[in-house]
Design a protein around this nucleic acid. Structure first.
Lengths: 225, 225
DNA sequence: GATAAATGTGAGTAAGTACTCACTCCATTT
DNA sequence: AAATGGAGTGAGTACTTACTCACATTTATC
């Protein structure tokens, strides 16, 4: 939601990857993130970025070489170093704790991913916008998600299926449906109908919608192995 | 899926709106649709469109005035004249037929919307891509959807709620969730993991996922008024 | 305090960019 | 046969684009 916090988070991720950032380099990143989010990559000129940053155009190229590299260097640290490990850690933590049931598992992941997306709001917007057009970005996103979804989340779903808490159904299909609900809510909340939304309530509604149908017991299961 | 069929459908819609199309104008439309879908609006130059169409650049401006107008004149006929009436008619037809249950109602709409999206595949892609950046396009899409969703689909959902076939929950939230599932499937099928998909089976899976949870009876309801 | 390296920039450049215009061609209409 | 008007274009135009480079300034290193 709040853009300034998001920007500093992005700067942190970049600094973590590239070492200390020169002051004007920071300004370029801040400006570029906002410009790209507002008018898209192809719709943003390096002049716009430079002017908004209060910096000479040449400074952009000094630090990032090309406009395309600027986009990738801004987005990839967040995707590579934050998205994947964060989800994976969460899922593992919950998986190892055998007391938790499906509902709280999914609730935790959904809320934390909403928090993540809010914390990097403009960057999420950039990624969504450029994904269909930019092959390099697509590559980065796919590999970032691969490990998480292929390994950890699908394994978690299978675990819950074995425990009888989730319907028997191809796990990737199940995962896709949960993700569709969450993504649909996020896009509605941030892009289609921005305003006052109660995340906790909406997540609970999605859990009602999904789980009462998905869990075999009819109610979120307390079924043993 | 098949692009040529999609293009002729788009040309039909445009012809229906603007009268007979000059031959080179048709070529421009064909080329522009493909270019915009592949590289985005801002990422496509009028030179690219002209070259691909085998036409002088000036021909584009003779017929459409500006590049932006070209985009809007291509997309708006499909959105205005085909999307809204089609859904509305379907929903009304089913609403008036009191024998139909929720499941077949939603199944019909989902399958027909998938068919529509496939029939206009590149245009759907263009709209998805430009929606966050282009305010004019957003305006057109919103008004096109408004009547359908605000009036017909929400009314249908309320009807089913009154009949006890759908859970009591704000109808727009319910609608959003069903749309999220469908959109998530469409985007996965066409953009994230293209390949062989069985629409009928996937729709049935979405209905299982959603309805068994959403319908109050636990099974898709045969509950009377 | 000297040297090297990193940071920053003004003034370019060559290649696009969307768009214009005077003009030709051609099918109708008169 | 002459006049009309739409379709189509080659050759431009004014401007923007991403990017370069020689040079100035600041910062780090010894």
């Amino acid at each position: 939601m709040q853009t300034d916090g998001a920007i500093t988070s992005i700067l942190d991720a970049l600094e973590n990857e590239e070492g200390h950032l020169a002051p004007k380099k920071r300004l370029v990143v801040q400006s570029a993130v906002l410009c790209f989010a507002e008018t898209g990559f192809a719709g943003t000129s390096t002049r716009m970025i430079a002017d908004r940053a209060g910096v000479a155009e040449a400074t952009i190229f000094r630090h990032f070489g090309t406009k395309k590299a600027l986009l990738l260097r801004i987005t990839s640290p967040v995707l590579k170093r934050l998205l994947a490990p964060a989800i994976a850690q969460e899922a593992r933590a919950i998986l190892e704790n055998t007391h938790d049931d499906v509902r709280s598992f999914i609730r935790t992941i959904m809320l934390s991913r909403l928090g993540f997306a809010d914390n990097y709001a403009p960057l999420v917007r950039i990624v969504i916008q450029e994904l269909p057009v930019n092959a390099d970005l697509r590559e980065i996103v796919f590999t970032a998600f691969e490990g998480v979804f292929g390994d950890v989340l699908l394994a978690a779903i299978q675990k819950f299926q074995e425990r009888g808490q989730l319907m028997q159904m191809p796990p990737d299909r199940l995962l896709r449906m949960f993700m569709s609900l969450l993504a649909g809510y996020y896009i509605t909340r941030t892009m289609l109908a921005p305003g006052d939304w109660d995340d906790a309530a909406e997540v609970e509604a999605m859990l009602d919608f999904a789980l009462s149908g998905v869990s075999q017991a009819g109610a979120p299961g307390i079924r043993a192995l």
